[in-house]
Design a protein around this nucleic acid. Structure first.
Length: 564
DNA sequence: TGGCCGACTTGTCCACAGATAC
DNA sequence: GTATCTGTGGACAAGTCGGCCA
């Protein structure tokens, strides 16, 4: 099962092929559209209007979103309206000329009532649905790749709906169309039992390409990009790749000093392009910024990474408070998450930045002689397999390791877990993994505090009882009273532990308010570091990784020792 | 060299199942 | 048993990066 045991021996395809045998049942399609009951009406200009099925379906997408803020946004409404009209009959088109006069509220209420009804379903009904889902999973959720039965990551095709990008997306509200079998390319091995398309339909194509890992693909209509059905992270093929990624980061560890010396040297280069490359690399290394590919303007939200930073995204302060040469970063990164940071840099970096800014407008590129392709080609020369993102992996993992070393002390398990989460948190902060504070945050904090208060009361009560028992024992000196003292002592101890655990939880939750740990844990932290830490400090692995995570990191759990 | 495309990884959010409290 | 809370998995968007082609 472990990669060590089966993986290394199976890392045998030197020709770039990913598998020899691949068999699966194909994807599961979204259920067909169910027209609204007669009584649920759409109104135009105050009058009920029966829509054709295609127009009605698209209207329901909008109706379902009525409570969301984005149905009030101009771009969303404009895009929706434009695509909706394409689904209307010519008669509908001539009647419906203004989105503002459309009333979807009855439809909206109908869907709310439906979801309420779903919640109110009896146990038996819920059980039936659950069983049906399990059946679907067991039939479509697995494939055979080489000699293993593997879990598929996403075997359902995305249902149609209205596209909602992240941040200020120019395409928000556009219709994401329904995917039919005729849109889907199937990939499997020739000698496998090929998946059957639904009755009366055909696949777009069935191919047998073992140089790729996907089982099915289709082109999505919003960006024109390809979507795939691939395996679950627990699969051999994903695990191996993941392991390789961390091995590359470990190779970087061995030569990172040399690379750092090199780019510091390059800050002095005569050539502008080399200076820019060196400063950018410094940011990627020090701040764990993403590479920053160019993006097509107007196609996506305006976000940047290191190489695509613009003049308007940084401010230079020769002096700020007590510090010299401070750079202030303020830009929207991946998923339109804001990156804001003020850091002091070396004088040479500062002078270079001043140079890069000369004679530029705010919307000009900071690194006008650099892009990710140039940067990665340079990195490739410094180390085989090195790219910009390896720095993120490396710095995340090394930070975890250092922080764990610094923070862990030989204390209770809850205290160790708090230390672990704090180390994890340091990484999340480095990688700028933020989250919106959960809607229920305040409340859940309050609940926890109430529990702590109760526990405290319990503790003082238990202490009183212990005191009384002791007094009693002093007076009587018999065995029975001695036992009573012991029992009470144990009770106090137990409650103290429980209280401490709760307090640790509260601290942890508070500190975690706006920080998301999941992404770094899943994608950046070499699991062998965590597994070794668990072994070293006697912490059960289940406290760190849940079931899914343990499956994903099975390779590391199997191979790690106390020291890593 | 630069643009485009394909494959694959990384990222946030949210519904909902199962746990826990009452 | 029901109400409430919380962690998990899934949905699906948005990155990275390499290869191909003109």
């Amino acid at each position: 099962f472990s990669l060590m045991r089966r993986g290394i021996s199976e890392e045998r395809y030197t020709d770039g092929s990913k598998w020899r045998f691949l068999e699966h049942k194909g994807p599961v399609f979204a259920p067909a559209y169910e027209p609204l009951p007669e009584k649920v009406k759409f109104y135009y200009n105050g009058k009920p209007m029966k829509l054709s099925a295609p127009a009605e379906e698209v209207a329901t997408f909008f109706a379902k979103m009525l409570d969301h803020e984005y149905t009030t946004k101009d771009i969303f409404r404009k895009n929706f309206y434009k695509d909706w009209r394409k689904e209307m009959t010519s008669e509908e088109k001539s009647i419906i000329t203004d989105l503002k006069k459309c009333d979807f509220s009855e439809m909206n209420e109908y869907f709310k009532a439906q979801s309420e009804a779903r919640k109110q379903m009896s146990k038996e009904e819920k059980q039936k649905i659950k069983e049906e889902n399990e059946r679907l999973l067991s039939e479509y959720g697995f494939c055979i790749m080489d000699n293993h039965r593997e879990r598929i990551g996403n075997f359902r095709i995305e249902p149609p709906g209205l596209f909602r990008g992240r941040g200020d997306h120019p395409k928000m509200g556009m219709l994401k169309r329904r995917i039919r079998p005729e849109d889907v390319i199937i990939n499997c091995s020739k000698d496998s039992k090929h998946p059957k398309p639904p009755p009366g339909t055909k696949w777009k194509e069935v191919r047998h390409d073992n140089k790729v890992t996907w089982l099915a693909s289709w082109t999505e209509n919003i960006q024109g990009s390809i979507k795939y059905i691939m395996l679950n992270p627990s699969s051999r093929i994903k695990g191996e790749k993941d392991w390789q990624k961390y091995e590359t980061a470990r190779r970087l560890k061995k030569c990172v000093d040399r690379i750092r010396t090199q780019y510091r040297e390059d800050w002095k280069s005569k050539e502008m392009r080399i200076r820019q490359r060196a400063v950018a690399l410094y940011f990627i290394d020090k701040l764990a910024l993403r590479a920053g590919n160019e993006k097509e303007e107007g196609e996506t939200a305006d976000t940047v990474g290191c190489c695509s930073l613009r003049v308007e995204h940084i401010k230079l302060f020769p002096k700020m408070d007590e510090q010299e040469y401070v750079v202030e970063f303020d830009f929207l990164g991946k998923d339109s998450i804001r990156y804001y940071n003020k850091i002091p840099v070396e004088k040479r970096v500062f002078k270079n930045l001043q140079l890069f800014l000369e004679n530029k407008q705010p919307e000009d590129d900071l690194f006008d002689r650099l892009n990710t392709s140039i940067l990665n080609k340079h990195l490739q020369e410094l180390m085989d397999g090195l790219t910009a993102k390896v720095f993120r992996t490396y710095n995340a993992s090394i930070t975890l390791q250092q922080q764990l070393k610094e923070l862990t002390c030989d204390d209770s398990i809850p205290a160790k877990l708090l230390s672990y989460n704090r180390a994890n948190r340091a990484v999340a902060i480095l990688c700028n993994h933020q989250r919106a504070p959960p809607k229920t945050f305040e409340k859940s904090m309050q609940n926890l505090q109430t529990k702590i208060d109760e526990k405290q009361n319990q503790l003082s009560a238990a202490r009183k009882q212990l005191k009384a028992a002791k007094a009693n024992h002093k007076a009587s000196h018999d065995d029975k009273s001695k036992k009573a003292v012991e029992v009470k002592r144990k009770a106090v101890q137990r409650i103290e532990e429980q209280l401490m655990k709760l307090q640790m939880q509260a601290t942890d939750r508070e500190e975690n308010k706006q920080i998301a740990l999941g992404t770094s844990k899943l994608n950046y932290l070499d699991p062998r570091i965590s597994v070794a830490w668990c072994k070293k400090w006697g912490v059960p692995i289940e406290k760190i990784y849940n079931k899914t995570q343990r499956e994903k990191f099975a390779w590391a759990i199997d191979m790690a020792e106390k020291e890593f």
